[in-house]
Design a protein around this nucleic acid. Structure first.
Length: 309
DNA sequence: AAATGAGCCAACCGCCTACTA
DNA sequence: TTAGTAGGCGGTTGGCTCATT
């Protein structure tokens, strides 16, 4: 038995008496630097798990749940915070269209990102756009907008930034964040085509503005799977991904494993491996880019389109 | 300069499942 | 087999920061 801060630290499970005693006057709210330090030191020396006894043994006057959350969402060394980049945005949109609010599952495919952060991103950014478009975030219209406009735009911008990086790397031309039209905004003609032309076939977007289907899954030319074909205007087509790829490759929340198991091949094929985006490409990592996906005119245009659906 | 509102995010809550004695 | 507990997950909230009035 170990005694820390005057409390029993049995290596076996807690006694009920001890738990009840410790549940009094437990701290809540923001963590202090001292608490963080205690938690980190304890986990470094003893490993994680058994959170209730961990909290007691580490001399932290909080619930085990609170300690676990603090570690997973904040203190863990491989956790990445802030600046969700373009690839990550695309991944979140794609995986959410596939799995819905399965934040933990989605987070497994975003190295270093926590379910909490992804959930917050979705609620604050994505739902904000839905609000701007005056439609429900779960509505078919908004999902269509994400799939056929937002995600292709993300892919365009990823490609554009990749090309800019390549150019810079070659030393020929200095890249600029405002260098290309694609980086600035999606041309209206293209956006309009997406929503109205025959190449934007899916059942839901005829030029008459009627919607004839209630399922993305039945889409014949554009689907939501990661093996998706965005078959318009040079959006890359990838035939290689097995729809079951993700299930087959799910792993735990280990950064190294995630780097391997995420569909990085999908991006690697375009020179956009996660390793690169994390460390090399300043464009991809520079600031929050989500808000510039939409400008006022985009919102206006999309509202017009949605009104005709 | 102060008041107000919106956005963001860390942390909590409650439910569910898996595990263990 | 069952009751108790820990851990995991998604939903929600509270407080901080910053912009606007």
């Amino acid at each position: 038995m170990v005694v820390v801060d005057g409390k029993n630290c049995s290596s076996v499970d807690d006694s009920k008496e001890l738990r009840e005693e410790d549940n009094t006057d437990l701290r809540r709210g923001p963590w202090t630097a001292e608490e963080d330090l205690k938690l980190m030191n304890y986990i470094v020396n003893n490993g994680e798990g058994r959170w209730n006894s961990l909290a007691r043994c580490a001399g932290i006057n909080r619930t085990g749940k609170s300690c676990r959350l603090r570690w997973l969402n904040y203190l863990r060394p491989d956790v990445r915070r802030g600046n969700i980049n373009l690839e990550e945005q695309l991944m979140i949109l794609e995986l959410h269209s596939r799995w819905g609010n399965r934040w933990s599952k989605i987070a497994q495919h975003l190295p270093g990102r926590t379910d909490n952060e992804i959930k917050n991103y979705w609620r604050t950014r994505v739902q904000k756009h839905a609000k701007q478009l005056k439609c429900d975030v779960n509505s078919k219209q908004f999902k269509d907008t994400m799939r056929y406009l937002w995600m292709p735009r993300l892919i365009e911008r990823i490609q554009a930034s990749s090309a800019a990086t390549t150019t810079t790397t070659n030393g020929a031309v200095a890249s600029s964040r405002t260098a290309t039209a694609d980086q600035v905004s999606l041309p209206y003609e293209r956006a309009h085509m997406m929503m109205t032309s025959s190449s934007y076939t899916p059942e839901n977007s005829s030029t008459t503005g009627t919607s004839s289907s209630d399922s993305f899954g039945t889409s014949t030319q554009v689907s939501s799977d990661l093996g998706v074909e965005y078959n318009y205007n040079n959006i890359p087509v990838n035939h290689n991904l097995n729809p079951d790829y993700y299930q087959a490759n799910q792993v735990g929340n280990n950064c190294e494993d995630l780097t391997v198991s995420t569909p990085s091949g999908y991006y690697c094929n375009k020179g956009l491996d996660f390793q690169e985006q994390n460390n090399v490409n300043p464009w991809l990592n520079s600031g929050d880019t989500s808000d510039i996906l939409w400008n006022v005119e985009d919102i206006w245009f999309l509202q017009q389109q949605l009104n005709t659906m």
